[in-house]
Design a binder for these strands. Structure first.
Lengths: 235, 235
DNA sequence: AAAGTATTTTGGTATTACCAAAAAACCTTG
DNA sequence: CAAGGTTTTTTGGTAATACCAAAATACTTT
């Protein structure tokens, strides 16, 4: 019947505000919060109160801090994949299961982003695509822009759960197949093919063509899995 | 091989120490801790660090504070703050994010199980389908058999990651929409529709027809989401 | 261009001061 | 003396400042 009276403590209000920003998806996993000093000023509270709120959020698994580095948003889906990975005797055997899940989520993501993404979000995708082109022309790897491009697509779905899951998935794929994946970029043909695929995906999304976006992403995923299989066979 | 070096932060050490004192029973529920100022001196740390540790312990439900009163050990640990993922799923909007993910994974799961599932696995599915029929005829809910039926399908994909993901998804969905689901089963028409959908899914898988399995699962998912929307709109 | 070095940024801790609520001590009054 | 009200003290809550330590960045050197 009656509602509980709100928190009176300032640190609690700070806590609630940051929490809801994360849950609503305005702050995305892996993103960095403003420095404590700045954020405290922005919210009109002391650094002490802000830090107490952050401690709580950290204890709950929303944030983590690194001295000198900053304060970052954690994936709320932490621990789900972790327990699954442990079932594999050799960790890198998990890569194909992981890639299969990725294929499912990313194809849907591309399809849905073509429908739901805002102009701004599509703009972000194009920025990362440009970064990849520049990296390729300079002979650099550009795998960070690659990952960011895919994240940008997941943002376009507006499904907060999916955004966190994707981040989590990428973390493990990266961890499990780091050296293998970097080999893909060292081959110029491979690098060129990847860029072409990324361009196709972007064009389809930007043209608001869900089916084409889906297909383009599927081609991309199949290509990566094919390369992975090829490289693992050699070993 | 080697163990990760534990907490270096002072506030973490304070946190660990107080926590272990509580867990060991040296501090009993309801008891009051020494005043912050005294305790800080006793532990040889600043009041700031001590308070940050207390915030964490408060977030985890070990302590509570009252201004002017003191710091007390909690009697019951059910006042504990939920983990990040639980905070996420307990919001009304979250169920649709969850169901969207479930739709993606389950449609793929049905499609793939129609290809990969062994005869024994398909047999397991049919057993749970029978259970559901019996439950329906007896006027029982049978939601456990329902969940098991879906799990059996995910097992049929032979993808360990997917199996884990599905388990977690079901757990949260169950947690969030318990009363909603039970309402669906109490309506006889609804119950009948659900059973027909399950049967369609099973027939397609057992006939090794991936496309039909996919479509049947999609119908099932859309039906559930439709019901959810209808019920949530009422609220 | 690469590697090493210095500077800046950013979280972690300590100290001090003061506010606000609860608890304890004190006083007033019948 | 007892009951009720008032003042003081205790104790958590917030703010501000200073400095330390690790990471990130800018810079210099080779």
């Amino acid at each position: 019947m009656f509602q509980k009276i709100k928190p009176k403590k300032i640190s609690d209000e700070v806590y609630e505000q940051i929490k809801s920003i994360i849950l609503s998806g305005k702050l995305k996993p892996g993103e960095r919060l403003p420095p404590e000093r700045d954020l405290a000023v922005e919210m009109g509270v002391s650094r002490t109160s802000l830090r107490e709120a952050i401690q709580k959020l950290e204890a709950q698994g929303f944030l983590y801090q690194v001295q000198g580095g900053g304060t970052f948003v954690k994936t709320i889906t932490n621990g789900i994949l972790d327990s699954a990975i442990e079932e594999f005797v050799k960790r890198d055997e998990a890569i194909f299961d992981l890639m299969e899940i990725r294929k499912i989520l990313e194809t849907w993501g591309a399809h849905t982003a073509a429908i739901r993404a805002t102009a701004e979000e599509i703009d972000t995708m194009s920025r990362y695509l440009d970064e990849m082109r520049e990296a390729k022309e300079k002979g650099q790897i550009g795998h960070i822009s690659d990952a960011n491009f895919h994240f940008a697509i997941s943002y376009g779905t507006h499904n907060v759960m999916l955004i966190h899951l994707m981040k989590n998935l990428f973390y493990w794929i990266e961890k499990v197949s780091y050296e293998v994946r970097s080999r893909m970029y060292t081959n110029p043909e491979s690098h060129e093919a990847l860029f072409r695929q990324h361009t196709d995906i972007f064009n389809a999304i930007s043209a608001r063509d869900p089916e084409r976006a889906y297909d383009a992403m599927l081609v991309h995923m199949h290509y990566i899995v094919g390369e992975l299989k090829r490289i693992y066979k050699k070993k």
